[in-house]
Design a protein around this nucleic acid. Structure first.
Lengths: 203, 203
DNA sequence: ACATACCTTTGATATAGATCAAAACCAAAA
DNA sequence: TTTTGGTTTTGATCTATATCAAAGGTATGT
């Protein structure tokens, strides 16, 4: 059973995309599952198919790739965001991305099969299509910005604009993950921080 | 008026995402416009709002950003692909990306306002939502791969896998655009080509 | 409180890619 | 055919980041 407040948080988080009427909500909730994963446990195991899309109620996760046996963290997600290895989820193929909890994390899940049912549901299909479209469009915008940062900016510039725009992440996440996220090694990030005086902010 | 074969190419190209019945097609076509743009003309002007989503019937375009007065090409698109400065189009805000034809190009256009009408159209709304979702999901998968390449691979590795997977692009567009696309300068790409023996392929 | 594992910093050095400038090349236009 | 503008290559040099290794921190669990 999913706690009432958890459901409420989820419903609230969805309003950024679509709003469900009470009647629709009653239809939807049977397809939802709650899940909690402990720090360091995996939401998606690298090399397996991603079966769920999740919504983060509490906690945080990192997305990583494996290259020559070492993990490279490419992305993060936090409360009120959706999490999935999208390509793997959408195509139900093996995931090149692993997704691991960085803290104890609570999620609402929708299984792939359930989503297919919802997309064919007599009362919910339209809204679910819309929901899917809006989420996907939202992430396209994120990706557009992130790709542009890699094409146009240097690692140092990316770090500095991260201080400007996503300072919260820096406070919450181990620096070596941030380094990967910026496309550099942890050692280099340490040096960038030194020469930019930690971004002027806190010495 | 849009030529019959052009419309046919468009309809065919859509089947990758959704299929329109004849009845639906009749409803849809009034919202479509044909457009041709000459080589070097712009589909989207950097700093203006992107008003259309396009489908490339013939030709090719490049996406670029401007940094300190110079253009950096971040992406391309070709026949049978959709083209738009998506973030600008979706949010109807100023575009940081310019989109310019690399060859004489023919497009089918859907204007933003028309798309809003289609998404509210009594007979087409559902299919258009689905269409929008599937396209957006498609591009998310593309972005996922492209971001991973930047996080995990070196420029040289990106070039080599481009030879493997997108050799067509290399034959069709100027090398200095490809260099930007790979995240490096044209000079560096020239040297990478030299040291990798042009990718072993054609000396 | 201690031990262990992990993270971050620092130093020394290597290297891929950047920059600047010139030459060679190519293709379209006159 | 020559000119012109743009592209690619090459050479010389610079620099940011990578790499390797060690030392110093910090947190976590026992």
């Amino acid at each position: 059973m999913i706690s009432k407040t958890t459901l409420q948080v989820f419903r609230e988080g969805l309003t950024k995309f679509v709003t469900f009427s009470d009647a629709e909500w009653v239809e939807l909730t049977p397809y939802l599952r709650a899940s909690s994963i402990k720090k360091k446990d995996h939401f998606v195991v690298h090399g397996k198919v991603c079966k769920h899309i999740g919504f983060v109620i509490k906690g945080s996760l990192r997305f990583y790739h494996v290259k020559d046996g070492t993990e490279i963290t490419g992305y993060f997600c936090f409360e009120n965001e959706f999490v999935s290895s999208y390509k793997s989820y959408l195509k139900q193929e093996l995931s090149l991305t692993g997704i691991q909890a960085m803290e104890d994390t609570e999620l609402i899940l929708i299984a792939y099969e359930d989503m297919q049912q919802l997309l064919a549901h007599p009362k919910l299909a339209f809204k679910m299509e819309q929901f899917g479209r809006l989420i996907a469009e939202y992430y396209i915008c994120c990706y557009e910005d992130r790709m542009a940062a890699f094409i146009v900016q240097s690692p140092e510039e990316r770090y500095l604009s991260m201080i400007e725009n996503q300072a919260g992440i820096l406070l919450r996440i181990p620096q070596h993950y941030v380094a990967n996220f910026l496309g550099i090694t942890p050692v280099s990030l340490s040096r960038i921080r030194k020469r930019t005086l930690r971004g002027v902010v806190n010495n």
